[in-house]
């Protein structure tokens, strides 16, 4: 792990984490029958180098919020600023990792990573950086392969390397591991933590996976609607204790998981059954 961290530090070089602030962000979409409010009154300050997970039921506007932060969508109310300057359109300080790898099928893995290099990177510097990033995500043997020749997990790592090639001040990840199998997802989470430990950029991570949020984030933002006002806002902010990497089986995290699942409207079953068991199951001495 230490070897990887060293590589990541060299690779990131000039990347400086920047703060992101959301001020009264709202987004309404025009529909056939008028407008539909998706997000409202989102106020959030993300510190430099912080990892913030955005959690919420599907369709609540998590991705929309992330896209607004990346300049791929526009807020209808309020606004987002990165390092103090408002985001209007595509912002060179942020890099996006999508849920799908979205690699160009006619380019090799290396060619796709090179797409992320900032404009004006010289060829030699670019080539070296791409090689290091590919090494970092463990794809050195596959640099010359086309996206259709590699697995979904490898494609997603390529996509992550492409985002890192930007030297992003903010890394915006939209359910980046959502389409991967459980085991690959855990490995990818560790990889992301290694990268972050070596070069602490600010990370905004949209996820539907409570465990992933607890494993990765400093804070978890729970989006949701109160059922009366249209549109989702921030329902809960959970500060996750403990330094990363965290024990996946810790009791403290299990308690937080229960709270977040409650917030998502999922019945956690555990508490009710526990109470029942103490009253109905006979214990020693009988």
């Amino acid at each position: 792990m230490s070897a990887t961290s060293a590589t990541a530090r060299e690779t990131s070089g000039s990347a400086a984490a920047v703060p992101v602030s959301f001020r009264g962000v709202g987004r309404a979409f025009d529909t056939a029958g008028g407008t539909r409010q998706v997000l409202r009154d989102i106020d959030l300050e993300v510190q430099s180098g912080e990892i913030v997970a955005i959690l919420g039921p599907s369709g609540c506007g998590k991705s929309t919020l992330l896209r607004i932060a990346g300049g791929l969508d526009r807020a209808t109310e309020g606004g987002v600023s990165v390092d103090g300057t408002p985001v209007t359109s595509y912002d060179p300080r942020s890099a996006v990792g999508f849920q799908e790898p979205r690699l160009l099928p006619w380019r090799t893995v290396a060619g796709n990573v090179a797409l992320g290099l900032p404009r004006g990177t010289s060829k030699a510097v670019g080539r070296e950086k791409v090689a290091r990033l590919i090494e970092l995500v463990g794809l050195a043997e596959f640099a010359g392969h086309r996206p259709r020749e590699i697995s979904g997990g490898m494609a997603q790592r390529t996509s992550l390397a492409r985002a890192l090639a930007r030297n992003p001040g903010v890394l915006l990840l939209d359910e980046p591991f959502g389409a991967l199998d459980a085991l690959t997802r855990l490995k990818m989470q560790d990889l992301l933590l290694d990268i972050h430990a070596a070069a602490p950029t600010t990370v905004l991570l949209v996820t539907h996976d409570v465990d992933e949020a607890l494993q990765l984030a400093d804070r978890v933002i729970l989006l949701g609607s109160d059922g009366e006002t249209p549109g989702a806002d921030i329902r809960q902010v959970v500060v996750v204790p403990g330094a990363r990497p965290r024990d996946r089986g810790s009791a403290e995290l299990a308690e937080l998981r229960g709270r977040l699942l409650d917030g998502l409207g999922i019945d956690r079953h555990g508490v009710a059954r526990g109470i029942e068991s103490t009253t109905t199951i006979p214990h020693y001495p009988f």
Binding site: M1, S151, G153, L183, K187
Partner: peptide, 26 residues
């Protein structure tokens, strides 16, 4: 595919021998 991806990710991070195995497999 997915499982050897996981393997090679881990391998790339942890040790050299496993990299070779995982990569060959890939």
């Amino acid at each position: 595919d997915a499982s050897h991806t996981a393997l090679s990710t881990g391998a790339a991070i942890h040790d050299g021998d496993a990299v070779r195995v995982a990569v060959n497999d890939g």
